[in-house]
Simulated assay, not measured.
Amino acid sequence: MQNTDGRKRSATAPDRGTAVPDRLLSAATRLFAEQGFERTSVQELVSAAGVTKGAMYHYFASKDDLLYAIYQRVLAMQMERLNGFAGAEGPVRERLRQAAIDVVHTTVDNLDDTRIFFRSLHMLSADRQIAVRKERRQYHERFRAMVEEGQRQGVFRADVPADIAVTQYFGAVHHLSTWYRTGGALTGGEVGAYFADLFLAGLSPVESAD
């Protein structure tokens, strides 16, 4: 196997102590990110996971099922964490900051999933594409609700539509997979803190010059 830059890459040995569905998801995430969904065969998947085709088809009817499961896994995790921040007590500014940091941190922790999302979403059936986009939209709406909460309280400026602020923020988050490299100078949490502070600075009320 080779990396995308042409260098030889040693295959990762499957963890036999891990449940079969998790091994398949792990192998699929790595292979889909490295060589693309359409260029990854079922045989490569099962070999990388250390299972038989029969075992794979027991849990997943097709490669499409694996691709869909990859999307659902991260979205569900991020939504659960966001609900925790949104529903917590305390100032909305701090809750939004923690949520903004978290989405960057969890995206960096799952960069392969992000790469797959933007490269291969169109490979899913139309119904599943709609379902994935709906779940992502629900995340954005929950995030936006905190911005709107702060605007009602006067904590955030109200002259900037919440939709615009959130769309701009997630535009930056969604591009992390194009430039962030694991092992670089900044951790995911540190990048998240910079992103969040810039985001909140843009939402801060503008003081009038008297």
Results as ranks from 00 to 15, higher is better:
residue 192 G to A: 09
residue 121 L to S: 14
residue 119 R to H: 12
residue 42 V to K: 01
residue 74 V to E: 07
residue 176 L to S: 06
residue 118 F to P: 02
residue 156 F to G: 08
residue 47 S to I: 11
residue 172 A to W: 02
residue 145 A to N: 01
residue 111 L to F: 05
residue 70 I to M: 03
residue 193 A to R: 13
residue 6 G to E: 04
residue 67 L to E: 05
residue 53 K to Q: 13
residue 185 A to D: 12
residue 31 L to R: 05
residue 119 R to G: 13
residue 188 G to F: 04
residue 130 I to V: 14
residue 187 T to P: 14
residue 29 T to S: 11
residue 208 S to I: 05
residue 48 A to C: 03
residue 136 R to N: 11
residue 171 G to L: 10
residue 64 D to R: 13
residue 7 R to K: 07
residue 67 L to T: 05
residue 120 S to N: 14
residue 66 L to E: 11
residue 205 P to Q: 04
residue 7 R to D: 13
residue 98 Q to D: 12
residue 79 M to Y: 07
residue 31 L to C: 13
residue 72 Q to P: 01
residue 35 Q to H: 01
residue 54 G to T: 05
residue 135 E to R: 13
residue 20 V to M: 02
residue 134 K to D: 04
residue 45 L to G: 03
residue 84 G to P: 00
residue 108 V to Y: 10
residue 91 P to K: 08
residue 186 L to R: 09
residue 77 M to Q: 09
residue 111 L to S: 03
residue 171 G to Y: 03
residue 153 Q to C: 08
residue 209 A to L: 00
residue 134 K to S: 11
residue 65 D to Q: 15
residue 115 R to L: 10
residue 33 A to N: 11
residue 174 H to D: 10
residue 20 V to E: 06
residue 142 R to L: 04
residue 99 A to Q: 10
residue 124 L to Y: 12
residue 140 H to Q: 11
residue 173 V to F: 15
residue 54 G to Q: 07
residue 148 E to L: 14
residue 48 A to Q: 07
residue 197 D to P: 10
residue 51 V to I: 02
residue 135 E to P: 13
